[in-house]
Every structure is written in C-alpha cells, then in structure tokens.
Design a protein around this nucleic acid. Structure first.
Length: 111
DNA sequence: GCCATGACTTATT
DNA sequence: TAATAAGCCATGG
C-alpha cells in the first residue's frame, strides 16, 4: 500500500477533541521521520475521504498555516467547534495531543 | 543527478 | 516563548 494511503488511514482515526502532530501521524503509519510526507498526503487527500486534517498540527501545537489564511481560519474554527482551546494559533499539546490505544490502532488498521 | 521547495522537527540561544 | 539553524525527504524542473 502506498505511504500516503497509510497516512490517510491513521489520520482518519484521530478522535474529535484531540489533535496529532505531522510527525506523530507518520510514525503511527510506520513512516518515522516522514512528517513532511504527512503534509503532502493531507494536501493530496481526496475530499471524498473527509479526513479530519484540521486535527493535525505541528509538534509545537502550532497551526501550520500562516495566520489569517483561509486554511488557518478554517482549522481554528473546526478545533474550537470540537472543544479544543486554541490560543494564538496554537493548542496545548500536553492536554489535547491524541494518545492512541495500541490495540485499537492495530484493530482499526486491520493489521 | 543537482537544486529549490514545503500543511515538518529538533536542538540551540 | 520566540527566532535560527540544520536536518529531513518526496516532488518537480
């Protein structure tokens, strides 16, 4: 299976009200060190998949788009809508970072 | 194959 | 916390 599709599968599992970093997604998808590939994958993801791309942020918790851009606004709105507090275009990772249950992860990914 | 680019990360100041 | 720098790797010219 293509690397991008694995990323899509993992990204689809992020629960509402939580966020994950690009690097984290890559790791969970079995692609350590491919954070930048995660960004590519999300950008290239077909709309039909309806991926929660807005639950993916930088390792620092910062939204990856320039402040004021359409994407940044959309991401901000979505997160706020799910109860994630966003301060100065960043969330508190200590509180909101997704901590996937390994069993659930393996099950969902059909390994 | 070399070079630039980017929805990144980590270490350093 | 913010700014830099260096590392990273798939893509496209």
């Amino acid at each position: 299976m293509k690397a991008m599709q694995q990323i899509w599968q993992v990204a689809a599992l992020i629960p509402a009200g939580k966020v994950a970093s690009y690097g984290q997604i890559a790791d969970l998808a079995g692609l350590p060190g491919r954070a930048r590939l995660t960004s590519k994958a999300l950008k290239a993801a077909p709309k039909s998949l309806q991926l929660p791309w807005y639950r993916v942020v930088r390792s620092s918790g910062q939204i990856a788009f320039p402040k004021g851009s359409e994407h940044a606004i959309a991401q901000y709105d979505h997160l706020i809508g799910e109860g994630v507090l966003v301060k100065s275009m960043r969330v508190r990772m200590a509180e909101y970072q997704w901590q996937p249950d390994l069993n659930t992860l393996l099950f969902e990914l059909n390994f």
